[in-house]
Write a protein that binds this DNA or RNA. Structure first.
Lengths: 228, 228
DNA sequence: GTCATGATATGACATTTATCATACCGTGCT
DNA sequence: AGCACGGTATGATAAATGTCATATCATGAC
């Protein structure tokens, strides 16, 4: 909750900047709600009313669905600008997925009705937003298909490379997920995630110190991800 | 290819009707291209330039991706109003999926640049379209997660019920997919699709006459789909 | 510090699923 | 008619994956 207007250093501003006149920008800025979350906190919960359009300013989050039986499926891991609500904000009354923070995160929310109104008045804004959200949905669909094609080793490799290439930009990083969550993301059991990581370690592909992963043989990991 | 304006009986018209003034509606109508496809024909091909916004007026299509290795993954089966291009039209230069007709189908295409322009000028249209496309993308994501949770029997049951409940509205229908395509959709092998169908027949759940399926024990099929 | 708890780890085993071989059937082609 | 071809079908077997049991380790609560 920031009283002053902090939109100037918000990455989402680029969407609005060409689209909105100054006075509208003021309106956006004054109605927005910024919130801080620490690791593990729930950002939003499935089956609750959608009243806001939420996007991620900083941090890392997981989107997931939970079963009556208690099991969870992770839909995607999203970083800033990957997560600008999801499509359902414009087609559903209730969220059909939950979001929790994997790292300390900051979100910013706009009143959904206001945003709809702005979009109606300003097609350029609508189009920009559509494009952003399309990219996110596209990535989810393609990633899911990609993962489904692979065997266990390929799935784990894919996930590790995702973090290395797209989130941390380093061959060494701290996993933001537990082994269980990794399993929920790529659709396998916790034991098999652990086993596969151990195999990679034994094969000299990784060094593992608890949650810290160091990718030693990137070539090999990449070829396992693509097919192995 | 229709010379006269046939938009009056197009289901998509509802999107435009409240949004566009008469003269714009004329523009849409005159620039649109309607095309007929018969079973098996390619409607669009992945890795080709996106120049049009395409939606399905009638028929049934499959969206799929193909591998260098030759294997195909079906992303979704879509009927009219399920398929209004896909999100990528607004975020990509090239299609990342192909579409072919499972039944005789009619598509209608608008020039994408024109549509963009209309959306920029008319936020209401943009918002309506966003909503339609959101629903489609949402369904793909949720279906994929749903299918991933299930075992073979559950997957086949789910697929059969999809056709019965959402496409043909009858307990007896002709499968628009080969067994191989069913396998490509739900992520299993052709042999196992066939085997599972045979099991269902032996268990008295289905009657099978080639491509014609009759669901005899719907209760049981439904419980297998949910979990069994 | 001790305890409880959940995460990580590994092995043995059961189950599920894929692969390979083979056969049959229908359709279109000549 | 005869043939080639792709779809359907089934069984035997191999491979991949899940389940269950158990152990260790780290962490936070008290």
């Amino acid at each position: 909750m920031d009283e002053k207007c902090s939109c100037d250093n918000c990455e989402l501003k680029e969407l609005f900047v060409d689209s909105l006149e100054e006075d509208h920008m003021e309106a956006v800025c004054s109605s927005k709600k910024e919130k801080d979350y620490s690791v593990g906190e729930v950002i939003l919960k499935e089956r609750t009313q959608i009243r806001e359009f939420t996007y991620l300013k900083s941090g890392l989050v997981k989107l997931f669905r939970s079963d009556p039986s208690g099991s969870e499926q992770i839909i995607t891991i999203a970083k800033p600008m990957d997560y600008v609500s999801l499509l359902s904000v414009f087609s559903n009354d209730e969220y059909n997925y939950s979001v929790t923070a994997l790292e300390d995160s900051v979100t910013c929310s706009l009143n959904l009705e206001n945003l709809r109104m702005m979009m109606r008045e300003n097609g350029g804004l609508a189009l920009s937003l559509l494009q952003k959200m399309s990219r996110a949905a596209d990535r989810i669909i393609l990633d899911t298909l990609e993962i489904r094609k692979k065997h266990l080793r390929g799935r784990v490799a894919y996930l590790l490379l995702y973090f290395s290439d797209n989130v941390y930009f380093s061959s060494e990083f701290d996993l933001p997920l537990t082994r269980k969550e990794m399993a929920e993301y790529v659709g396998m059991t916790t034991e098999n995630v652990i086993r596969t990581l151990s195999e990679f370690r034994k094969d000299g592909i990784l060094k593992i110190y608890g949650k810290t992963i160091q990718i030693v043989n990137q070539e090999l990991l990449r070829s396992i991800s693509e097919f192995g």
